[in-house]
Write a protein that binds this DNA or RNA. Structure first.
Length: 288
DNA sequence: GTTACGACCTGCGAGC
DNA sequence: TGCTCGCAGGTCGTAA
């Protein structure tokens, strides 16, 4: 599933292949892919025609292509989204949702999304702090740990003020962005913290450790091209990442913990799964 | 204002 | 063999 490292891999690929090029035509194959573009698919395609991509940016799991008219083509991969840069005459993918071609007649940009949780939209760029501009729909998203202006102290203070479980808090993209279910479980395993620990019981040291581990695990994953469990996550050239081999908790139910040898368990959490070591990550009820 | 939860969506695998 | 159902999970809207 695309989280921060996977989106950053895609961002770098799109930047390499698309920046500086002018969009010639856009075809929307599935209207749901542009559901957040209120004016509809026709307007979406019309407004992209003739626009030059000046740069490709990211915050958390949101990626956007800056255009030469103070707007941006915002892209979210959702659960199964891919942005592929394909030869102009390549066969169209089964789940192709949006296709952009360029005036130079070179490689086309394909937005492919099996489960259609992702999408694209054109949004105005808004000036924020540090002389940066972000699309309107990204305004409420917190900076991610790989952002040079991310403020650790703000995260540490903020998470301890919340009244919820720690995993819910780090999945909340308004406190810290880029973390999804996989890296949440990995960061909690490295920090020896149970996912249900009340945030108000986190010490400053635990919050700091959790942030450090979340940053480290995502940086390591980025170095290996991201985490791929299946063909749903690939880079712009269709290649998988290798970080799934390094995971310590996520997806390792019934396997021994790499630290203590206890058997990793899977538990229901907010309509999804959470993986943890029962010995390293003791229940907060057990600890009290 | 904050938190919790269901809906959205499709392909795959397990069970019958 | 074919059908049904549960699961995967990021984000948003709504209810409490």
């Amino acid at each position: 599933m695309p989280e921060l490292p996977e989106v950053e891999v895609v961002r770098r690929g799109v930047d390499k292949w698309v920046s500086g090029r002018t969009i010639d035509s856009t075809k929307v194959f599935h209207s749901r892919a542009v559901r957040n573009h209120i004016a509809g698919p026709k307007d979406f395609a019309k407004r992209l025609k003739g626009r030059t991509v000046t740069s490709v940016n990211r915050r958390g799991k949101f990626m956007w292509l800056n255009l030469d008219d103070d707007h941006a083509l915002v892209t979210h991969l959702g659960m199964s989204g891919q942005v592929l840069v394909q030869p102009f005459d390549a066969e169209l993918e089964k789940h192709l949702r949006v296709r952009c071609t360029f005036t130079d007649g070179g490689r086309a940009m394909h937005f492919v999304d099996q489960r259609t949780f992702g999408g694209m939209a054109i949004e105005e760029l808004i000036e924020v702090d540090h002389n940066q501009q972000v699309p309107e729909c990204v305004l409420h998203i917190a900076r991610d740990p790989l952002d040079e202006f991310f403020e650790p102290e703000s995260f540490i203070t903020g998470i301890r003020k919340k009244n919820t479980q720690v995993k819910r808090a780090i999945l909340d993209q308004t406190l810290i962005s880029g973390i999804g279910n996989i890296y949440a479980d990995e960061a909690l395993w490295r920090s020896k913290i149970h996912w249900a620990t009340p945030t108000q019981r986190l010490t400053r040291g635990q919050a700091q450790t959790l942030l450090t581990n979340a940053t480290e695990v995502m940086t390591e994953a980025l170095g290996q091209g991201g985490t791929s469990f299946d063909a749903l996550y690939v880079n712009v050239n269709g290649e998988s990442g290798y970080f799934s081999r390094e995971l310590n908790a996520y997806g390792r139910e019934d396997e021994p913990c790499d630290r203590c040898g206890s058997i990793i368990v899977r538990e229901a959490f907010a309509n999804r799964s959470s993986f943890r070591c029962p010995r390293c990550q003791r229940s907060p009820r057990t600890l009290s």
